[in-house]
Write a protein that binds this DNA or RNA. Structure first.
Length: 678
DNA sequence: AGCACGCCGACT
DNA sequence: GTCGGCGTGCTC
């Protein structure tokens, strides 16, 4: 049979349809190819050969030829059509990688839309959304026993808010910013968690009782542990799926496969969980959206908050942002009316006292940087239970300086700052880890180092002297501790690493506020308020939190527990300055000519083009800011330029004599968290 | 990316 | 006359 005849036969292939008529069988698979090249970020049409006709359905992974013979790529079948729009000779799908439709239609559309909004490739989102295949796991899943129906779920009420308030948002598929109740509570299992975890798990159960899954996105593993503990008291274990990047590949794939289907589940995970394959989706809930861990570090750098907004719109599910401190982004959505605002009822106001950084009468307390009122309060509270001390940095001495000239000490190898992990350890570079042996000051030539500031370990040492006989517990990145008991102890924790205390802390000291506030960032104030609020919410009911050394609007936002008001004022400032999130920003980085050309295609006022500035290595960066309404336009212009730069003529650059062709590189990043820094 | 196609200098 | 150099274009 000649190729022409075989084509004709294929063209006549028919499939019976239920009405008894015969229609031509669909024969073209439209495939999203798994390639990092931006110019390939579209659908390619492939003929489905007869032997694969039965197995090819949308969502499965396939292998397809790409360009010349022999070269193949993986891809996902997005749709199957009778007639594609490609005029030319189609290649055949080469094979099926897996028969499981891992890329649901919903997630495929979401990937396209999130990528478009960020001027990125859909496949980059898919790579985050769909874990790598594990043949063994998949085989076991395919032959799983006909699952007995999951036990029914009784919807609990979401306590702490006006009766039925949160339930109504979930039922009506609405959107809201929810202020969390700033208390800790004990679960029936005996585990202590933040009230927020109880409210979030109850919200998930409300959705699941109504037959729809809930996606629950949390910034870190400690938050995930709390939420899972809370979920276990309202849902049977078969209804809870953990899906996060820390799992081993088989575990992650097993969890991922469990999400496929119509069962209503609580799907818990970190940022990538917003792309979980839930078909019947009733709720997306995000905890603490201001935490930078919600910001995806891989291109196209889509924030959980933004992916959740797009998915909510697309699948008409409910959307809840839970938090103690409102981010300016969420505040903007509240002001727009896009999100409702729900606060605890009755209101719960923690006791917060701002304290000046004055010397204590007690020499040892003064050495530990604790003002006398706070020191007295901590000593009294230690009679009854644990006391939390929040510090800015881990280690012993977070910085070192030259004894002779006072200049801050830098690494001889990479210019990074030096720090000391313990009282006796050799100073080392914070950036590259090199031990600072034979160090000398590059300013005056001095060879002696002086410790500057106190990390958690040094604070612990000082406090040990100020409170003799008290048990000291250190919690930081190196010593993660989830919870501590109700017995008296001083818990020294770096911000964000505070353990939960059984019964809540009897007093809390926020020590390094002054230092935190001087950090250079557009978001300092917002971040500080979030760190302090999250720590304050760990106090026992009626216990006092002391904020040391910080005054002004920031301190009063904490003491009055009016974080939303602070976010409103902060957002008003950003509007005045045309800073995000009042406007959106995109950074364009690359060779000067490429950047200039790309920026020229974007139609924004000259005032909104900041740069170019030299970033070294022959590369420059320009920041473009624009109103939200212009987002689609700016993204599509810049995307076109990225593709043009990738396909256009290559610049020849001299490299050790040889001429190496390289593409004029052009990178675009939307909504960078810190575009105006550095 | 990676490979095929296309137009100009030193070779049997 | 042509073999092969790399600049250019394309991937169903």
């Amino acid at each position: 049979m000649t190729a022409a005849v075989s084509d004709a036969v294929a063209g006549l292939a028919v499939a019976p349809d239920p009405a008894g008529l015969s229609v031509p069988a669909p024969r073209i698979a439209r495939v999203l190819v798994d390639s990092p090249l931006p110019q390939l970020d579209r659908l390619f049409d492939y003929r489905i050969p007869d032997n694969l006709r039965a197995g090819i359905v949308p969502g499965i992974r396939v292998r397809v030829p790409l360009r010349s013979a022999g070269r193949v790529a993986d891809g996902y079948v997005i749709e199957i059509v009778d007639h594609g729009d490609y005029v030319g000779v189609l290649s055949d799908v080469e094979g099926i990688v897996s028969t499981v439709p891992v890329l649901s239609a919903e997630v495929a559309v979401l990937a396209r839309r999130t990528a478009d909004r960020a001027a990125g490739s859909a496949i980059d989102i898919v790579r985050v959304a769909v874990p790598g295949r594990q043949a063994r796991v998949e085989k076991a899943w395919l032959v799983r026993e006909a699952a007995s129906p999951l036990p029914p779920v009784v919807a609990p009420s979401v306590a702490g808010y006006a009766e039925g308030a949160i339930e109504a948002v979930i039922r009506d598929r609405g959107r809201a910013a929810v202020d969390a109740v700033p208390l800790v509570t004990q679960l029936p299992s005996g585990v202590w968690v933040g009230e927020w975890a109880v409210a979030m798990s109850a919200a998930a159960a409300v959705s699941i009782a109504a037959g729809a899954s809930a996606i629950l996105a949390l910034p870190d593993y400690r938050d995930q542990e709390q939420l899972e503990a809370a979920l276990a008291s309202v849902l049977p274990p078969e209804r809870i799926v953990r899906l996060d990047a820390r799992q081993s590949n088989p575990d992650r794939y097993r969890a991922f496969l469990r999400c496929i289907g119509d069962d209503a589940l609580a799907i818990v995970g970190n940022r990538s969980v917003v792309y979980a394959p839930a078909t019947t989706l009733g709720l997306i809930a995000v905890w603490d959206d201001g935490d930078p861990l919600h910001s995806e570090p891989l291109a196209p750098y889509v924030h959980t908050r933004d992916a959740a907004l797009l998915r909510q719109e697309q699948q008409s599910c409910a959307l809840l942002y839970f938090g103690h401190a409102r981010s300016t982004e969420v505040e903007r959505l509240v002001e727009l009316g896009w999100l409702a605002s729900v606060s605890p009822k009755p209101a719960v106001l923690p006791k917060v006292v701002p304290t000046a950084q004055q010397a204590s009468n007690d020499r040892l307390a003064a050495q530990a940087r604790i003002p006398s009122t706070a020191w007295r309060a901590a000593r009294e509270a230690l009679e009854f239970g644990p006391v939390l001390v929040q510090v800015a940095r881990p280690g012993y001495a977070p910085r070192l300086a030259c004894v002779d000239c006072g200049q801050s000490a830098r690494c001889l190898r990479c210019e990074g700052p030096l720090a000391q992990k313990t009282a006796r350890s050799v100073p080392a570079c914070v950036w590259c880890g090199a031990l600072a042996v034979d160090w000398h000051c590059d300013n005056c030539g001095g060879a002696k180092l002086r410790q500057v500031g106190s990390g958690a370990t040094r604070t612990a040492e000082d406090l040990g002297r100020a409170f003799p006989g008290v048990r000291i517990i250190i919690a930081d990145g190196d010593h993660p501790i989830l919870g501590v008991g109700a017995e008296p102890a001083l818990v020294i924790a770096t911000r964000g690493a505070e353990p939960i205390a059984a019964g809540g802390y009897r007093a809390i000291l926020l020590l390094d506020g002054e230092r935190m506030v001087t950090r250079e960032s557009l978001r300092v104030a917002e971040d500080c308020l979030r760190w302090w609020s999250n720590a304050t919410a760990l106090a026992a009911r009626g216990a006092t939190t002391y904020l040391v050394g910080v005054g002004g609007a920031l301190a009063s936002a904490l003491t009055t527990w009016r974080q939303a008001d602070f976010a409103r004022a902060e957002l008003a400032d950003r509007r005045r300055l045309r800073f995000p999130p009042a406007v959106r920003v995109a950074t364009v980085t690359g060779a000067l000519e490429a950047v200039a050309k790309a920026v020229a295609t974007v139609d924004v006022p000259a005032d909104d083009i900041l740069g170019p500035v030299d970033t070294g290595a022959g590369s420059v960066r320009t920041i473009i800011r624009f109103d939200y309404a212009a987002g689609t336009r700016v993204a599509s212009s810049l995307r076109a330029e990225v593709i043009r730069a990738a396909t256009g003529r290559r610049r020849a650059i001299a490299q050790r004599g040889a001429r190496v062709p390289i593409a004029p590189n052009l990178r675009v990043r939307f909504d960078d968290v810190e575009p105006f820094l550095e």
